[in-house]
């Protein structure tokens, strides 16, 4: 449970299931920036990325009943919606015509200076510490989690055997957890 939440995730989910407007605003205020960054990894155009973010939140609101807490956390579900919308946009004919497909490498060392200052969550402090994370570990997490590449694509792009992705991913996330631990507790 990240400390930035005022509601517990269970409370927030229950309120959203009952179409609570304030809970939705809270959801947006606390997750929009993180989700926007995810969309920006795939979509180079900030105006288009904002459109996708808006579309994603409309979808989250309209299909909230589809969220199943037993299958995973709320953020994971929302991230999947955003990532899939971004990928769908990239695959769409009109977007291909614009030839704005972003190269994955560009997003690997992606770091933002633009964070919500109100949040207690010290994003900047964490980022400094995230530099301790090995480059290839960051790459594997970013490509899978943020950019939605398949294991096959990751294997080819990072030139690592398909069978080792599982263990490398586990190592990366364990390292992440270690770095983030002081900020979460």
């Amino acid at each position: 449970m990240p400390q930035i939440l005022k509601y517990t995730e269970e409370e927030l989910v229950a309120l959203l299931k009952s179409n609570d407007k304030r809970a939705f605003e809270y959801l947006y205020d606390h997750y929009a920036a993180a989700l926007y960054a995810v969309i920006l990894k795939k979509i180079d155009d900030s105006a288009l990325a904002e459109d996708i973010l808006q579309e994603a939140f409309v979808k989250i609101w309209n299909h909230f009943s589809a969220y199943n807490a037993s299958k995973g956390r709320l953020f994971t579900w929302m991230l999947n919606i955003c990532r899939n919308l971004a990928i769908d946009t990239l695959r769409s004919k009109s977007f291909k015509n614009q030839s704005k497909i972003q190269r994955s490498e560009k997003a690997v060392d992606f770091i933002s200076n633009n964070v919500n200052e109100k949040e207690k969550f010290d994003a900047l402090g964490i980022r400094i510490h995230l530099d301790r994370l090995a480059h290839d570990q960051k790459q594997i997490v970013n490509m899978a989690y943020f950019e939605g590449f398949t294991q096959d694509e990751i294997s080819k792009k990072l030139d690592i055997p398909l069978g080792t992705i599982k263990t490398k991913m586990r190592a990366a996330i364990l390292a992440l957890k270690k770095i983030l631990q002081p900020y979460v507790e």
Partner: peptide, 12 residues
């Protein structure tokens, strides 16, 4: 992962 995403957040 969620905290990692929050650490990379960008305000729209």
């Amino acid at each position: 992962l969620e905290n990692y995403a929050q650490a990379n957040a960008i305000q729209p």
